[in-house]
Simulated scan of single mutants.
Amino acid sequence: MISLEQVRQIYQQPLTALVFEAQSWHRQYHEPDAVQLCTLANIKSGNCPEDCKYCPQSARYETEVENYGLLPLDDVIEQAQAAKANGSSRFCMGAAWRKVPDGVQFEQVLEMVRQVVDLGMEACVTLGMLRPDQAVKLAEAGLTAYNHNLDTSARFYPEIITTRTYQDRLETIKAVAAAGIEVCCGGIVGMGETDLDRIELIHTLANLDPQPKSVPINALVPVEGTPFGDLPILDPLVLVRTIATTRIAIPKATVRLSAGRRSMSLAEQALCFLAGANSIFTGDRLLTTPNPGLDADAQMLEQLGLISQKSEVRSQKLR
């Protein structure tokens, strides 16, 4: 257990001291120069009934997002094979659902999971709210991780979403953990929240039982047509501070530098790695928002002297 005051003290340190402490923790549990490459595929896009103010896939907003139903199995596996060929060791599949549907579509997702695992990749899905019995079926299919972000603090959450409660999210996370699936849970910064909201989010994440093994930290990408479409781009040092605090509070987790990299310079991304981030999502798009392409990421890793870490190496490292 870590107290809110402890997280606050960590977060509010001078940035140089904070990053130094984060890097010290990072080196205790992770290869210092290794970054896991992941790919996130949008397997069902748009027409979501939720009202998340940041999300262009909500049916409530007029955006340019393409709407389509669940992709055919062969299309998804083809994407997974391409991701593996391009260096990704983790393939994540996202579907814009409020909750996981029963029936044919869920059976199709289960088969996607099985075939991704058969490729020798880590398989992760993010499908919305999940019941315990559905979590068990995903575990039986071999799912590595289930992503379900808390997004922000419990206090600020109603300003972001009204169609699903914070407790709803915690219940899904509980079901995932009970099924023995790795919890992937993080948040988004740059939505108008305060430092205290970021501190409270990290405090909540750090006190989940068990702690999440994967923590994606996203910077808001404002999308025209959403309520947050006009918000300014986040100060990257706020992202660095959030990543560093997360690394200290949840030292064994893979901290994923997720959405928002397209607007960041090489130096800003390097500072995020120094602060403890050790995973990125590759490819031209991250669900619906722009992302640096494969060539840009390969060049970045080369310039920084970082290596791509395979899932087999990770599993041996974390035993």
Rank of each mutant, 00 (worst) to 15 (best):
Y54R: 04
Q23Y: 09
M1N: 12
L196W: 12
V116D: 00
E107F: 07
A17F: 09
L257S: 04
C52R: 05
V223L: 10
D295R: 05
P49M: 02
G283Y: 11
Y29V: 12
Q309W: 07
L266T: 15
C52V: 04
L40F: 07
K137A: 12
L143M: 03
P232M: 08
A259W: 06
E193M: 10
A244F: 03
I160R: 10
E111N: 06
P210K: 07
T254V: 11
Q108G: 10
S153R: 02
N67I: 15
A275G: 12
L18E: 05
L73G: 04
L234G: 03
L286D: 02
Q167C: 10
E224T: 14
I248S: 15
V240C: 11
F273G: 09
S265P: 10
Q115S: 06
I233S: 07
T16D: 14
F273W: 13
Q12V: 01
I250W: 00
G276L: 09
A270W: 13
T126Q: 12
S89Y: 08
N47R: 05
A175F: 04
V183I: 15
S88D: 13
A96Q: 05
D133G: 05
A123E: 01
D284Q: 04
R114S: 00
Q269S: 04
A175D: 03
Y29A: 13
F281V: 10
L318N: 11
R247P: 15
A275P: 14
I250D: 00
L71K: 14
Q134H: 03
R114I: 01
M264G: 05
C55D: 14
N67F: 12
L130Q: 06
D235F: 00
T245N: 07
M300I: 01
A253W: 14
E171Y: 04
S153H: 00
L294A: 07
P290F: 01
F91G: 00
I199T: 04
K53S: 11
L130G: 05
L208H: 07
C185I: 01
S258K: 12
S89R: 03
V189A: 12
Q303A: 11
L234Q: 01
P158K: 10
I307D: 12
A178W: 05
L196A: 11
